[in-house]
Design a protein around this nucleic acid. Structure first.
Lengths: 167, 167
DNA sequence: CGCATTTAGATCGCACACGATTTAATCACT
DNA sequence: AGTGATTAAATCGTGTGCGATCTAAATGCG
């Protein structure tokens, strides 16, 4: 059994808490030591925490993020929104059609460039966005994680994401 | 437009870097300040980094995690594996059937309790697991994130996940 | 102008996630 | 032993993510 070869452009993004390279024989617990798994499973946990709150707004987690993104700036293109969310049209187009069907956004081809689709929030969409902004305030600190340490965690994750995306 | 009511059991899980409660008028940038989004988008970035490496093993990201989980301990039940991955049978059953179809695992009903399905790695599955363990070693540090800071980040994420899951 | 190239979205197929429900087996308790 | 509750896994429907491909519009360039 051969180990997979090292890539030519040696990106190394701190993936785990143990020093690479790993030997197959190493006795490690992947789900404790792999940062990628901590990020993955924390994402699942966030999704589950948000879901009951977003259900009342009739939004999924991604739809919630999209609505917040649209509320930031009116009349964005699909690509523009995609840059904020780190997603592309293959994910956003169906999502935006669902939001349109729900009466929260309008999709219109640009007059200057017919390739471009511009998204605007409807009145109902703006109301939903305002409610969506209140959702995080509902999740209230129970134990000892301070706002400061969360801010720090957020900074670290953003730096990591930037590295993962190639700087 | 009504703000959503505070829940009776006031869980607050530090969700963002600004102090709640948020007013709808607050001029914030959700995608910079929301920890949930940093976790979400970092997860997407991890997925994309891993994909080309896992493609060579013929595994998806979740299949990779599942194989590593199965390699830790032989003859696990679906529920046992689910506890490691924070997933349930509605996600794992189809995934395990795909791994079975690929010849990497075997699924067998327990003789003692016919409700239980036990999963074992085949020889091919163990080979794949050994290769899978080498994958993180391929992702090599390019810039200034040290193993120590990654270990710290990992600890913080795990603590956060624990809180999100209700302690 | 003519035509290849590029670009923005859309479409398609596959694999997750997850709430809700179903099935079948076991347990609890009388 | 009987039966209602519980449990483990499977099934189903909806909504992401994403690689690959497609379409149509705009651009570049001789």
């Amino acid at each position: 059994m051969s180990s997979v070869a090292i890539q030519s452009r040696a990106i190394y993004i701190a993936i785990m808490t143990q020093t690479p390279p790993l030997q197959p024989e190493a006795n490690l617990d992947p789900f404790e030591d792999f940062l990628c798994f901590s990020v993955y499973s924390t994402g699942l946990a966030f999704n589950r925490i948000y879901k009951p709150l977003l259900d009342r707004l009739g939004l999924t987690y991604l739809q919630y993020l999209a609505i917040l993104g649209l509320a930031q700036k009116d009349d964005q293109t699909v690509s523009e929104l995609g840059e904020k969310l780190f997603l592309e049209s293959n994910t956003l187009t169906p999502l935006l059609k669902r939001l349109e069907a729900a009466g929260l956004v309008e999709r219109r081809r640009s007059a200057e460039d017919e390739r471009v689709v511009r998204i605007t929030l409807t009145d109902k969409g703006r109301e939903t966005a305002a409610e969506a902004r209140c959702v995080p305030g509902e999740l209230v600190e129970a134990t000892g994680v301070s706002i400061e340490s969360i801010a720090e965690l957020n900074r670290e994750l953003k730096a990591l994401r930037t590295q993962l995306r190639g700087g």
